[in-house]
């Protein structure tokens, strides 16, 4: 499995972390898309298991979940998918999953199987730091990193608790809301990165609403160690249904452009 530390220490720019729903639009195409993203230079992958009721996600990722569920993706198959990806290239993989899927699978068994597939970290979208004890010790016991979200409306005492339970990186939510594209970058993100940086040495990665290479560069300039891009990329899959070649070409182009923007930022600093 890939380690976050190795990536963050070796890069002289912010890491690019694309997000995909496993099995979107179907298992085979999804695997090719993910390989394309890795070939184009993605540093880390954030992968989601499709869920029937994704309350933390906006319409773009909801639709991706529906596409993947309709073509038969399940948590068990998703973990096999992770193993195929890590066999292709040993990048670190963070999993974003809703709690009911983990609970139903069996929390310990789920973590064990994800670890065995080569996974790196686990983030449960609908489990806050208050319930971290339910999962974090079990995840660490099998050697998984535990990622939690920090949001702009978190008071400082809570941020400290989040930091205490987080290993790997802090998933920093740039805005108040669900996932989805935004025209402009949230004004809330820079102060949050700065607050986190005074409290911890953990890498700070920013997600939600990062919709262009320019947004990515801005977030990197604001101090982020990684940029997570979901809806903007997932949208390409939705808009090019049935045309795998175009899908892969546009995703590769977007990743190449974003990497270039992040490299430009590193030259400035």
């Amino acid at each position: 499995m890939g380690r976050y530390q190795d990536v963050f220490e070796s890069l002289h720019r912010a890491a690019l972390i694309p997000f995909f729903v496993i099995g979107d639009p179907d298992r085979q195409t999804s695997l090719e898309i993910v390989k394309t993203a890795l070939d184009a230079g993605a540093d880390i992958l954030e992968l989601g298991i499709p869920f029937s009721d994704p309350v933390a996600d906006g319409p773009t990722i909801q639709k991706a979940d529906i596409r993947a569920l309709k073509t038969g993706m399940t948590p068990r198959k998703a973990l096999e998918f992770v193993a195929e990806v890590t066999a292709y290239k040993p990048v670190p993989i963070g999993l974003l999953v809703y709690y009911n899927l983990v609970y139903r699978y069996g929390i310990e068994a789920f973590f064990r199987d994800f670890k065995q597939a080569g996974g790196t970290s686990i983030l449960i979208a609908d489990l806050s730091i208050d319930d971290a004890e339910e999962v974090a010790p079990l995840a660490r016991a099998v050697g998984l990193e535990t990622v939690f979200m920090a949001t702009p409306n978190c008071p400082e005492a809570r941020l400290k608790k989040i930091i205490q339970y987080t290993t790997g990186f802090i998933y920093t939510v740039s805005l108040l809301g669900t996932t989805g594209q935004r025209d402009s970058l949230s004004q809330l993100v820079k102060p949050l990165i700065q607050r986190l940086k005074t409290l911890t040495d953990l890498p700070v990665c920013v997600g939600f609403g990062i919709s262009s290479p320019a947004h990515a560069r801005q977030v990197a300039q604001d101090g982020a160690d990684g940029v997570i891009i979901g809806s903007r990329i997932v949208k390409i899959i939705g808009e090019n249904a049935g045309d795998k070649d175009t899908m892969c070409r546009l995703i590769a182009e977007f990743i190449t452009q974003t990497l270039k923007a992040l490299q430009e930022d590193s030259r400035i600093s």
Partner: peptide, 11 residues
């Protein structure tokens, strides 16, 4: 019971 919600809703 409990309160299994995304972090952003906790406040």
């Amino acid at each position: 019971g409990g309160f299994y919600v995304p972090e952003v809703l906790i406040p």
